[in-house]
Simulated assay, not measured.
Amino acid sequence: MEILIYDGECNMCSRFIRFISKVNKNPNLHITDFNSNWTNKNVKLDPNVDSMIFIKKNKKYIYSDSIIELLSSTNRIFIPLKIAKIIPKSCRDRGYKFLAKNRRKMMNNNACPLPTDKLKSMYLE
């Protein structure tokens, strides 16, 4: 089982999750948020890490690695994105952290669209 844990209160994250559910071809991928019962029971969160967390084969990926690994797991068309790992992790993570820090300013839309059936089937409560 592969799991993406995200900030359910962030509009940017929620839009990204909707995108992931549309392109996902991986039946083993599940999604949940930081405040879910599943996360509380199964994952020890580090309060100093402001990142989506992608868990694959019992390994946690954070910051830019979480996005690269997640996308390459959702659909074969994203596997070439793994080449981004030639960019030093410190540079990739700096960009990720900048977006994470400013995401609420960039995406202030309060509209919350209803989840699709596909997204509901991927979600861990």
Results as ranks from 00 to 15, higher is better:
M106Y: 10
E125N: 12
S121C: 08
I86Y: 13
F16L: 03
D46R: 08
C13E: 01
R15T: 05
I5V: 15
F54L: 06
I67A: 14
N102S: 07
I83H: 02
D33K: 00
W38E: 04
F54Y: 11
Y6L: 06
A111F: 11
K41A: 14
K105T: 12
L81H: 12
K25A: 12
D93A: 06
D50I: 04
K85L: 11
N35P: 08
A84L: 15
F34G: 09
D65N: 11
R76P: 14
Y63D: 10
Y6M: 07
N75C: 07
D65I: 02
T39Q: 03
P80K: 09
P27W: 01
K101V: 00
L114P: 14
R92F: 01
Y6P: 01
I86F: 14
N42H: 14
D117T: 10
Y96W: 01
R103N: 00
I68M: 12
P27F: 00
K22M: 12
A111W: 05
D117S: 13
P27N: 01
I62P: 00
F19P: 12
S121M: 06
N37T: 14
H30W: 02
D33L: 00
S73D: 14
D46M: 08
K89N: 14
N35S: 13
N109M: 02
R18A: 15
S73T: 04
N35W: 07
Y6C: 04
P113A: 08
D7E: 10
L70D: 03
K41V: 06
D33H: 09
M12C: 05
P115M: 07
S36A: 08
R18D: 14
S90R: 08
N40I: 01
N48H: 13
C91F: 15
R94N: 15
G8A: 06
T32S: 12
K97R: 13
F78W: 05
I86V: 15
F34E: 11
N48G: 14
S51G: 11
S72L: 06
N58L: 04
S51Y: 09
D117V: 02
S66G: 09
